Amino acid sequence: MEPTNLLRQIEFIKEVDKLKYILRKTKLLNSDRNENDAEHSWHLSLMAIVLADHANAPINLLKVIKMLLIHDIVEIDAGDTFIYDTQKNHVNTEEERKAARRIFGLLPDDQANDLIAIWEEFEEGQTDEAKFARAMDRLEPLLQNTSNNGGTWNEFGVNYEKVYTKKQVIKQGSERIWQYAEQLINDSVERGILKK
């Protein structure tokens, strides 16, 4: 490998350190501190390792972990869009694609192309790996909000219907985890921390 490749890789590593400064709306479990994107990505990756046996189909776990570690890197440029945002849709935007090209483009071409493809696969959500990775991405905030007595649901006036609709993505990656998540949602209504 050329020395210039190493320098490009080091530049990428320095750039993605910025992920630690991107704050999410959701707070850490049992905490009043907002989670940052780096913490979120690490937690999802560990969740995938622990919960992989519950995937609906056999998955390439390394690919899932790669997806989870890089899926929010674009937020360094594009910022974090709250999943329940009423002004900006939480979808793969041109702004995010531009960010992916810039940030992953710091790497040598073969690595850049590989990570962009994995990022796109996650965003499209069609493969078994992407479905499971997206299930983890939707499960973690549910765990956080239920541990924080409604957390961002109450803070931003998010109701049962919105939560239930957004969290159904979990079912595509894991029916078993969806059953657990659905019960958490229903229990949250009964506890009065999620309004119908």
Rank of each mutant, 00 (worst) to 15 (best):
124 E>T: 10
138 R>C: 12
138 R>Y: 15
132 F>N: 09
161 E>L: 10
127 T>K: 08
101 R>M: 11
165 T>H: 14
123 E>Q: 15
116 I>C: 07
125 G>H: 03
125 G>K: 05
145 N>Q: 14
122 F>M: 08
156 F>A: 07
138 R>I: 03
152 T>K: 04
131 K>M: 10
159 N>E: 11
116 I>S: 03
142 L>A: 05
104 F>G: 06
104 F>I: 07
123 E>R: 15
162 K>D: 15
109 D>Q: 15
127 T>A: 03
152 T>I: 11
106 L>R: 14
150 G>L: 02
114 D>V: 01
139 L>I: 14
116 I>V: 13
126 Q>T: 12
152 T>F: 06
147 S>K: 01
129 E>M: 02
130 A>K: 08
153 W>K: 01
106 L>H: 06
114 D>A: 13
129 E>F: 06
134 R>S: 12
114 D>Q: 12
139 L>K: 02
153 W>H: 01
103 I>T: 03
131 K>H: 03
112 A>T: 04
138 R>L: 14
141 P>C: 04
164 Y>V: 07
166 K>H: 13
165 T>D: 12
105 G>W: 10
136 M>W: 03
109 D>T: 15
125 G>M: 04
168 Q>S: 14
141 P>A: 07
137 D>H: 15
118 I>S: 05
102 R>Y: 12
131 K>W: 05
118 I>H: 01
143 L>N: 09
161 E>Q: 13
138 R>D: 07
118 I>R: 15
158 V>M: 06
119 W>P: 02
104 F>R: 06
115 L>E: 02
148 N>L: 08
103 I>K: 10
101 R>N: 14
110 D>T: 14
113 N>K: 13
162 K>L: 12
140 E>P: 00
160 Y>G: 02
102 R>I: 04
147 S>V: 10
132 F>K: 06
129 E>D: 01
113 N>Y: 11
101 R>K: 14
126 Q>E: 15
123 E>K: 15
117 A>Y: 05
150 G>Q: 04
158 V>S: 03
155 E>F: 00
158 V>Q: 00
153 W>Y: 10
146 T>C: 09
128 D>M: 04
136 M>Y: 02
121 E>V: 02
142 L>T: 06
128 D>I: 01
109 D>A: 15
114 D>T: 11
155 E>P: 04
154 N>M: 10
152 T>Q: 11
102 R>Q: 10
120 E>K: 11
144 Q>V: 00
137 D>A: 15
145 N>I: 01
110 D>G: 01
155 E>M: 07
115 L>K: 06
106 L>I: 11
